[in-house]
Amino acid sequence: MKLINNKRYTVLLVLGLLDIMIGLAEMLKIIPHSGTTTPGVSMMGAGIIILILGLYLSKTPESESMPDERTMKRDMKVQSTTFGIILAYVTVLLLMDVSWSSNSINMGDFFLIFSRPEDMSVLFSRYMSIIFVAIISVVALTFYYNKKGDLE
């Protein structure tokens, strides 16, 4: 069985291996870092996922792995709609932040996640919440447009 039949996916394999090596070097303290959280484990995890993806895609024929026109149209519509959702979400977060920092609106501890990000800084930071909203929107909208059918 030929392992790599598409040169494009070798980039993924190299990227995955590089990610794992940087993660290992970080965990073995070869690369110093000044942050509070160690990125080694997450880099290794991402590297393993990219490596598996690259291996899978390099084994499948190009005609199967390349998206058709309908899929491309759907993805563009989904990502264009998600772009609007993220813009609205970032604006709402910004307004909430400004309101809280100027003490014009006191919500107490109701929105603990957003009012005191240092409590759950890694999992529920504002940036992570934006990425989370983006992922959920993409999945939900892909499902919706797939079911809807006509993409005009």
């Binding site: 942050g35 990502q79 264009s80 772009f83 993220i86 930071s125 940036y127 990425i131």
Partner: peptide
């Protein structure tokens, strides 16, 4: 749709880079 698709990826990449800087550096 095409402009929104590319703008979405640009914005997501900016958020990811900001998150990495915020989490893994001082």
């Amino acid at each position: 749709d095409k402009a929104g698709h590319h703008a979405f990826w640009i914005m997501v990449n900016v958020v990811i880079i900001l998150n990495l800087i915020d989490t893994f550096t001082s």
